[in-house]
Simulated scan of single mutants.
Amino acid sequence: MKKYLLYILITAFAIKANAQNGFQRTAKGTQYQMLTHNPGDRIKVGDIVTFNVVQKTEKDSVLYSSYQMGKPVQMQVQAAGDLMDIMPLLTVKDSVLIRVPTDTIFKTQEDKRPPFLPKGSNLFFVLKVEKIQSLAEAMAERDKAVEAAKAEAAKMQAQEGVNTDKYLAEHKMVLTTTASGLKYKITKAGFKPKPLKGDSVYVNYIGHTLQGKVFDTSIESVAKAVGLQQPGRTYEPINFLLGAKGVIPGWEEGLLLLNEGSKATFVIPSKLAYGANQAGPDIPAFSTLVFDVELVKVVRGSHPAAAVQKPVAKSTVKHTVAKKTLTTKKKQ
């Protein structure tokens, strides 16, 4: 951050200093001022260039910064355009200040001119070249990065399985596993029909990681007990339509296994949750998630009469539960 702020200050100083001095022009009229110039091979048409860029107004307001975004820009040099007019002048680690009159930008679309770019004003771009590659070199680098990412993902997935097995052993949990990999156990059997896709369901839940960190709940007393901050949250069963893909796949599958009124624990592998994506500060990539859920209510959608399950007779409940368990779901 300090490095970024220092660069912004230097950039602002350069713009003010050079605004008073003459800019050079390319053959096509692009205005530029070299800030740093290094020896070496210049950029050629067809090269892949990686560069950082800061876009500012005359009053030093930053409109865009690749430094702030945390990722430089990468593009292939073509034969046309203002930037492409400048690129062949540069080599690695060169910095250049480019001035673009806003009147040329909004010449045919004056109605789209924002108030902070009045007539007669300029936009300034400060570019710093970080890397120059041929197309073949850039593609080879990309392929290498893809393979490295695949290897890292495989490693993390393997570790996820180890962590899940350890969690189940430590908590002496015996669960049923579905073909998809969802693990579940019914902790309280309900006697009303199971939901179907197209039904609306109301669910209370507590979601936590294998490390025991509660990251979400619909129950206020639980949130207070664990110090979970959910500003503006209304604590009540969440409501959503099954089959609409509004929740993670593990929830979709698990809730279809539960009779209304049931409670269950779901252990949901990352492939049925958020996969390789991080979901907030408490859920890293490839995280198995644990949910304690209660299927509070089912509101029927439109189904053929034969599709709706009849209530389970109490005399058969113990036998049914002994053979089969249900799964829980996590809110997205």
Rank of each mutant, 00 (worst) to 15 (best):
P281Q: 10
T288A: 04
L256N: 07
A313L: 15
V299H: 07
L289K: 03
F286E: 13
P269T: 02
S302F: 04
L272F: 03
V317Q: 11
T265E: 15
A305C: 05
N239Q: 15
E253M: 13
E260F: 09
A279P: 00
V296N: 12
P304Q: 05
T234R: 10
A313T: 07
P269S: 01
V308R: 02
T265R: 12
F266E: 02
V290R: 01
L242T: 07
G254D: 04
I268D: 04
K263D: 07
E252P: 09
L242A: 03
L241A: 07
D292C: 08
L257D: 13
N259A: 11
V299M: 11
E294G: 08
V293E: 13
E253D: 08
S302Q: 15
S262V: 01
K245Y: 14
S315Y: 10
T234Y: 01
A273E: 10
E294D: 06
D292A: 11
S302P: 01
G246A: 14
S262K: 03
L289G: 08
A306K: 14
L272D: 05
D282R: 01
I268K: 04
Q309A: 14
P304I: 04
V312T: 15
D282T: 11
V293Y: 00
E294K: 12
K297E: 08
A264H: 01
S270N: 09
G246E: 15
Q309D: 11
A273T: 03
S287V: 03
F266P: 01
A285L: 02
N277E: 14
L255W: 01
N259C: 02
F286N: 14
F291R: 00
L256A: 12
A313P: 02
L258T: 07
L255Y: 00
T316A: 13
D282N: 03
G275A: 07
S287L: 08
K314H: 14
P269L: 00
L295Y: 13
D292G: 11
S315M: 14
V312W: 10
K297C: 08
Q278N: 05
F291Q: 00
Q309W: 11
G301E: 06
T234F: 01
T234M: 12
G301T: 04
L242K: 05
P249F: 13
A285P: 02
F240A: 12
L255N: 04
A264D: 01
G246I: 09
P281L: 02
V299C: 06
K297R: 09
L258A: 10
N239Y: 05
V267E: 05
E252T: 10
W251V: 08
P281F: 00
A264I: 01
L256P: 10
L295Q: 14
S315T: 15
Q278S: 13
P284K: 00
